[in-house]
C-alpha cells in the first residue's frame, strides 16, 4: 500500500491569505488602485515616498509656472551687480546684475526637463537592451551582456564630456541626448536579470500555449510584472541625468547661456562668489539640486519596498 506521494518540490499552502469575502473584495479594490494609476497609490502609503511626492510636486509646479514665480526675467542684467540678499532681490544679484532668485526658479525647469527626458531616454534604451538580452537569451544575451558590462565600467562624466566636445552643438538638448545615450547600462543589467527570472515562469510558457505572439508575451505577460523595476530605473536614470547635467555645466562644458543650477554654480564659482561673500549665489542652486535629488530618493524608497519586501521595515 502507499499514498499519494509528496512532490519533489515542497508543498504550498492551500490557505488563503484572507479568508472572508469582505477582505478579499477589499484587497481587490486595493489591487485595482495599485494597477490603474499604477504604483502611485502604493507610493502614497509609504511615509517617506509621500514626502518625496509632495516635494516633487512643488518642484513641478515651480518649473511649469516659472514665469509666475520669478519676479524678474532671469536673463535680464538691468540690475545693480553684486546686491546682497533682500533689498528687492530675494537672493541678491550676480556680478552681471542678474536676479539670482529668478534664475533659481527657471533652473528648476532645466533640471526637470533633463531629468524627465534624459531619464526616459536611458530607461527606454535599458528596456530594449534588457528585454532583448533577457528574453532571447543565448548568444544574443552573451553579446549584449558584454556591451552592458563595458558601458557599466566606462566612467560616465568623462565620456559625456568627451562626446560633447565632439558634438555638433552645445545646446541643452545635445547634452540631454548624450546623457540619455550613456546612462542606460545599470538599468539594462537589472532589467535583464529580472526578465531572465520572469521568463522561466510557467505562465510565460502557458501564454505561448494560449497562442500569444512574441510581442503579446512581452507586453502583456512580462511588462506588467516589471513596473516597479522600470520606475526605480527611471528614477535612478533621472537622478543621474540631473547630476550629470549639473556637473557638466559646473565644469563649463554645457551651454553657459542655459539657465540651470549647474551654470549658476559655474558662474558663481567662476566669479569667486564665496570669496566676495555672495553666499546665496552658490548655496541656492546647490541646495535646490540637493532637494530635488532627495525628493526622487524618497520616492524611490516606496518603489523599492514595492518590489523588495526584504527592505520593508518590520
Amino acid at each position: 500500500m502507499s499514498m499519494l506521494q509528496q512532490g519533489e518540490t515542497p508543498t504550498v499552502s492551500d490557505a488563503l491569505p484572507l479568508d472572508e469575502e469582505g477582505a478579499v473584495e477589499q484587497q481587490t479594490r486595493a489591487n485595482r488602485r495599485f494597477r490603474v494609476p499604477g504604483w502611485l497609490g502604493i507610493l502614497w502609503e509609504n511615509r517617506k515616498s509621500r514626502v518625496g511626492l509632495v516635494m516633487l510636486a512643488i518642484f513641478l509646479i515651480v518649473a511649469v509656472f516659472a514665469p509666475l514665480f520669478s519676479p524678474h526675467d532671469p536673463r535680464s542684467n538691468d540690475f545693480a551687480p553684486n546686491l546682497d540678499p533682500g533689498s528687492g532681490h530675494l537672493l541678491g544679484t550676480t556680478t552681471k546684475g542678474e536676479d539670482i532668485f529668478s534664475q533659481l526658479v527657471y533652473g528648476a525647469r532645466t533640471s526637470l526637463i533633463v531629468g524627465v527626458v534624459g531619464g526616459l531616454l536611458a530607461t527606454a534604451i535599458a528596456l530594449v537592451i534588457g528585454l532583448t538580452a533577457g528574453y532571447l537569451g543565448g548568444t544574443v544575451n552573451e553579446v549584449l551582456t558584454f556591451f552592458i558590462n563595458l558601458a557599466l565600467v566606462v566612467p560616465i562624466l568623462p565620456l559625456i564630456a568627451l562626446l560633447s566636445a565632439y558634438a555638433p552643438g552645445q545646446g541643452l538638448w545635445v547634452v540631454i541626448l548624450i546623457i540619455g545615450l550613456t546612462g542606460w547600462a545599470s538599468g539594462a543589467r537589472l532589467k535583464k536579470a529580472q526578465i531572465l527570472t520572469l521568463r522561466s515562469r510557467d505562465y510565460i510558457t502557458a501564454a505561448v500555449f494560449a497562442g500569444e505572439g512574441l510581442w503579446q508575451v512581452i507586453f502583456r505577460e512580462i511588462m506588467p510584472n516589471m513596473i516597479s523595476l522600470v520606475v526605480v530605473g527611471f528614477m535612478g536614470s533621472a537622478m543621474g541625468a540631473i547630476g550629470a547635467e549639473a556637473g557638466l555645466a559646473f565644469l563649463g562644458f554645457g551651454n553657459p547661456e542655459t539657465i540651470s543650477w549647474g551654470t549658476m554654480s559655474y558662474w558663481a564659482n567662476n566669479q569667486g562668489a564665496l570669496v566676495t561673500g555672495q553666499w546665496a549665489w552658490l548655496l541656492a542652486p546647490g541646495l535646490a539640486l540637493s532637494f530635488l535629488i532627495m525628493a526622487l530618493t524618497l520616492v524611490n524608497f516606496g518603489v523599492d519596498a514595492l518590489g523588495n519586501p526584504q527592505l520593508r521595515e518590520e
Binding site: V12, R201, D202, A207, F209, E212
Partner: peptide, 28 residues
C-alpha cells in the same frame, strides 16, 4: 498549440499575477 495544452506543476508560477482569472482564460 490549438490541439495540445499543458497543466503545470506549480500553480503559483503558472498564473500571471498581473491578470484576473477571466482575462487569463479569455486569451486562448
Amino acid at each position: 498549440r490549438k490541439h495540445i495544452q499543458m497543466v503545470f506543476q506549480d500553480p503559483y508560477s503558472a498564473l500571471n499575477p498581473a491578470h484576473t482569472v477571466l482575462s487569463t482564460l479569455m486569451r486562448p
